[in-house]
Design a protein around this nucleic acid. Structure first.
Lengths: 324, 324
DNA sequence: CTGAAAGCGCTAACAA
DNA sequence: TTGTTAGCGCTTTCAG
């Protein structure tokens, strides 16, 4: 298990190829302006290949002053499939620039973000929420040259809410409800989405949405449903699909039906949304573009270039199913 | 944005405290056997604190020959809340040993695991599935001294299946169905759980479970339900809660009821399980203990000690709700 | 009790 | 065209 297996260093390759370490370095890094005879080059490549040589990341980073590691700080909230897809997209986009993405789950008891940043020697740190000034400073001290909060909490989230409300309104609903999550960690995002809903209502000349908190418990959801129907709400925007599914359960519990008695629209399109009873209408958005956009910002930041300010096309849209 | 902000090195601290780099190192690392006068010690600490000094991880690792980074390779499967909770537990457990956990999502287009391992200079690599020999070798070459697949696919997973089947059998079901996931990435785990179910059936003298693949689509689930009822199956164990909820949808679609016509038991207790229609009986297990156990194996591996072979108490149990 | 020096593996100047 | 040297920041002998 613990076979030490001495690392293969550039010295080994040099010896095997009968050249100096420098030459190895030059060949393997394709150093510009250097002309190495094809024969030598081939010998070096072959030796490196045969020995399974890998440049030692720490040494390289130490020398270069920066690493190719980017760190994504994921908050301690339920990671939906949309987030994991986003991470993958981001990793792919960064890989195209020779950057390696690793993620850190920010838990209450784990290591602090700056610690992790220092440990892996990340050059860039990407977060889902704005970092406070102290954290930013700590991250810089820990070696990060780029600190980039995803603008996840701003208008993009509001757009989701606007889209949900717009959908209900376009289907004739005139009194809108909003189902807030009971999860405190998600609350800021929920508030943001709610603002979007409120905006759309105002714009359509409707009264503000009736916002209620809905936990993931049937009785609680049922009570919310009762209150909505009492106030003649006919359509509910839920913070996310989890909450939406709870609302559907509440409707069922009350012996009512969706969408006849109360229409429901969720957000995120989690896998079980399509097998909810009834299948859940929901809002999705493209993480692909936004990921690529952030990768570019990171690269721009690292190379000192100004990031181009073209905003990513977020492209939120409604997936129509039976619940509305 | 890109303020270079020269790093604070131990030289800076030494100068500020009026001592040598060695002394700084000795003080900050609590080097054993060295006795530093309290006064000097205090001066060093104070200077380090004031300057916000952080030892440079790369240099330290380069010198020491190993880093404090552990890398968790998460397969490209939907990260459910149970997995993310597990990651958090593992990170916490490792942090107790001064190890830093970061995770890498293995995507098709991203960087290869050995690449990531090399980039972050991980000393330990933990995976959800057994690595093939080539990968293991590549990881060793990349600097990992410990390569530890989580025994996630072995008996623990089978236990989950056994538990599910046991629950149904104890409630009088004599013909058991199994709902396999349609997600290829999850299939090995599903097969393992199925083996557990089959074992329990055999032990009870029942026929083998009727295994069908159930995707997250209502018509597909409905068809599976039809086939089960045709074969007089009365209780179904689902690979996980997502699949179980699809089965519930299929039952509903057929105009049947759970548990009267067909009982369903899931696994993992995802948030929406309790608001499924009807609320879903499911099997949960403690990730806490298993995470701690793995952290210990990693530490043991790194320090050359033999890992103690006490198996983690996995503690799977049934959460009884309305669907069985 | 403290400091000087060596060296981890790498690469960028500079010399040959 | 290739090799020699220096140094990134750290820790760890070994002298003083």
């Amino acid at each position: 298990m613990t076979r030490p297996a001495r690392r293969i260093t550039s010295t080994d390759v040099a010896r095997a190829a009968g050249v100096s370490r420098t030459t190895v370095s030059v060949v393997l890094n394709d150093a510009p302006g250097q002309s190495i005879p094809e024969e030598t080059r081939r010998r070096v490549m072959e030796a490196a290949e045969r020995l399974g040589y890998r440049p030692h990341a720490w040494a390289r980073a130490l020398r270069a002053g920066r690493s190719d590691v980017a760190l994504l700080a994921v908050p301690d909230l339920p990671i939906g499939s949309s987030i994991s897809r986003f991470i993958e997209e981001l990793a792919t986009a960064l890989a195209a620039f020779n950057l390696t993405l690793v993620t850190h789950l920010e838990g209450a008891h784990g290591r602090s973000l700056p610690d992790v940043c220092a440990s892996v020697g990340a050059s860039a740190v990407i977060g889902f929420y704005p970092f406070d000034a102290d954290t930013v400073q700590a991250l810089r001290r820990a070696g990060a040259t780029v600190v980039l909060p995803l603008p996840y909490e701003d208008s993009s989230m509001q757009q989701v809410g606007r889209m949900q409300a717009g959908h209900l309104i376009s289907r004739g609903h005139r009194r809108i409800g909003y189902a807030l999550t009971a999860d405190a960690a998600l609350r800021p995002m929920a508030d943001d989405r709610l603002r979007g809903v409120a905006g759309a209502c105002a714009q359509a000349g409707l009264e503000p949405p009736v916002a209620l908190t809905v936990g993931l418990q049937v009785p609680e959801a049922a009570q919310a449903v009762r209150r909505w129907t009492e106030q003649s709400v006919t359509g509910v925007c839920a913070f996310n699909d989890d909450t939406a599914i709870a609302v559907l359960a509440g409707i069922h519990e009350q012996g009512l039906r969706s969408p006849t008695d109360l229409a429901v629209i969720g957000a995120d399109d989690i896998p079980t949304a399509q097998v909810a009873i009834p299948p859940l209408t929901t809002v999705v958005f493209d993480l692909h573009e936004i990921a690529r956009d952030h990768a570019e910002s990171v690269v721009a930041g690292l190379s000192g270039t100004q990031p181009r300010s073209t905003p990513a096309s977020f492209n939120p849209r409604v997936i129509q199913r039976a619940s509305t």
